[in-house]
Design a binder for these strands. Sequence first.
RNA 1: GCCCGGAUGGUGAAAUCGGCAGACACAGCGGACUUAAAAUCCGCAGACCUUAAACGGUCGUGGGGGUUCAAGUCCCCCUCCGGGCACCA
Length: 851
Amino acid sequence: MPEETQNRAAEDPIRYNPTEIEPRWQAQWDADASLYAAEDEATSKKPKYYVLEMLPYPSGKLHMGHVRNYSIGDALARYQWMRGYNVLHPMGWDSFGLPAENAAIKNNIPPREWTLSNIAEMRTQMRRMGLSYDWAQREVTTCLPDYYKWNQWFFLRMYEKGLAYRKQSKVNWCPQCATVLANEQVVGGYCWRHDDQLVEQRDLEQWFFRITDYVDELLDGIDKLDGWPDKVRTMQRNWIGRSEGAEITFKVKDCTDGMAITVFTTRIDTIFGATSIQLAPEHPIVKHWASFDDTLRPQVEEMVAQQKAAKEADAFGNIEKHGVPTGREAINPFTGEALPIWVANYILADYGTGAIMSVPAHDERDYEFAGKYNLPIKRVIAPNVDTDDLALPYVAEEESVLIDSGEWTGEAVLEAQEKMAAHAEAKGFGKAKTTFRLKDWGVSRQRYWGTPIPMIYCDGCGIVPVPDEQLPVLLPEKIEITQTNGSPLSQVPEFLNVTCPKCGGKGRRETDTMDTFVDSSWYFYRYTDAKNANAPFDSAKANYWFPIDQYIGGVEHAILHLIYSRYWTKVMRDLGLIKNDEPATRLFTQGMVIKNGAKMSKSKGNIVSPDDMIAKYGSDATRMYALFAAPPDKDLEWQEEGVAGISRFLARVYRLTTKYAPEIAAHFAEEKKTGEALLAGLSTEGMNLLRKLHQTVAKITQDFSGRWHFNTCIASIMILVNEIAANEQAMDNGLVPIDTRAEVFRTLTLLLAPFAPFLAQELWAQMGQTGQVFRASWPIADEELAKEDEIEIPVQVNGKLVNVVRVAAGSEEEMIKAAAHEDEKVAARIAGKTVVKQIYVPGKLVNIVVK
RNA sequence: GCCCGGAUGGUGAAAUCGGCAGACACAGCGGACUUAAAAUCCGCAGACCUUAAACGGUCGUGGGGGUUCAAGUCCCCCUCCGGGCACCA
């Protein structure tokens, strides 16, 4: 906007000027620390409502994704206040993590300083947006000791319960981050932070949380999360990856020391068709054999290397199947047959038992492998109807039956699976077994900017937990950040060297820090009691507020954050801290913000800065556009012209409302007519306005409680404002009395309050209303007033629209049909034809079928 | 390969239970106001055919089939786009 225009706009008293209105109200709101405070849980008589948006990483600047996320949550929070709920609406900072260390290296700023100044900047932006967070009582900053102390406290509790443990394991290693990554942080074989960095596999001693102890509950609980999007529920099910089957032990033939191989299979019913055993190259027994077999060893080593390379390149599915016979055989416990044992490059050591029985006749992959090495193929499953020309491999259907399978011949596959597993268990060579894809949660990170793991290594006592009274284990402030030599903390002697709490001897601290997903797994509980110095939170408070009524965030957290926080909730429940099983009743995942068809990103150069938008059009217009341009669950294409359009709409509302505000203010100062008195002798124009008003109230109220299509909510407010503008003359010349005008504008302001809080507040005040508009009562739609007294009925002939007839609302079917037949166009269309039948949908349509 | 979404004018979209396809906006075009512009206000606006214009007609929700008096919406098949899982035994 040219400067000149802007200046002139500022001088015009009638013109909507968000750059004047918004800072004025923001100053007042900022000065009132209790403005958005929730009522005390012990005394509040209102029903509670906990609305939460995912806390951001404080990168320094809000982006449009944030704006969208918070606009949704803020509209909901304000709406619920107006509906009379006791609303908890907090915000915090997911403020540990690698970018702070990268910034420290790049700009030579300590991570803490960098992070805290980013937080200050982003908090300012959020306040400028007018977001209704309780900063004074609830703000949570995960990188500060008053928060991470409780991460450590939880770690100790989990250690006591055996839920935190240490083991050597293969880990994902990003050379650029110089740290371990969780599986979830590996995207297609690449680091989630470095698109071009392949992740390597390394062996390290790591701390793990036993999430697998809760895997059944995590999976089964998904069924009950009916307030969560199906998409997220499906993603979590896939991620957990339950697979039901059986473990069967095959004895190795001619082996005196009882050596045996246990395979995992989901198809125990096909065991009579097994023609070989396939082992992962890293299977312990393979290692053992290779150690003294000079022919086998190099081949196995090659396969191990190949698997590792393929995994790192995320191309495991692409490697060509290849195997080597070990020259040994295993005994099928069901048949007594000896089956050759092979080592194969497509078998994973860390899934199931690292060993399979190969049934070529009924498994695609086994069929391919058997074909390549001329292994026998033996059919043991048939469709219910006997066929001779069955194409192999034949994967069983529900009604398939077993053939050539001893005493199980003729059984249906599903029954056979159960019975054969039971048989194996009874005979002691197997059992039914469920396997999961989900692994325990590796939480060690060789980084500085995270929660120190509160453990000490003592030469005499071994692993010693830091006693509670010594918490928090503080991160040292003075530190040089490097990206080599493992953990930065190991370079700090004051941190590293410690007295063993058990024996008083010399000990050394754990120098790894915790995965930042620990921080975000329970932060929303801390909001309920953010200043508690003696406990992570007061259980009574958490039990009042939990579960979260509505959680809102990006779908990119569907697996990582949302599984970990579900897990943490169950752990806290079992520690007796809370009563709820799940953190959030309802979850909403908003769509991405797109510009020119691509997700906004620095690399694409299609970033639109919220600051620029707000400076140009104001917070209200920016927020409202984010809600108007698309339904909140879909992707949103950012078009600046659209923001300008919303700004024009708000200007229209401002001009119309302020025009009548003084007389409305005077009117409210006097006695106010209500109900019948308001309607007595009201003009058509007045009735039309009230009707549209109540229709709008009904629509928005319904949408808030259901499908959240705020785009159509805002459209309906636009329709209302168009109707008001169309009646401006009628209002000016007295056709619409002051009572009605006051009612219309006051209600319009209430309807705007969740979407455009600054403007609504300004108009509220100009109309002489006191207090905060978002604490006023949400209007109640009057069904009678909202009813149309004349309705349009489309009339079809043979299903094609011919004309629309107007009839009085509530007209009888016969009257409406008669009106349809009287219509000239309809009459012309059916003239000379026989009416076969007539369809009448009450209040909707008439369809006359003719021949 | 399996499992979820999605595809509607020039653009973002609407149509909530099978009942007027394109609400509400954006961009565009025409007009009013203005010396002029901006702002504002009013009007037009799916495509095609017909017409001087209007009236009128036909087609139209990714493609093909089906159910129905009636389909963007339900069923079957297919294409493309997005997301998740994947030699997972």
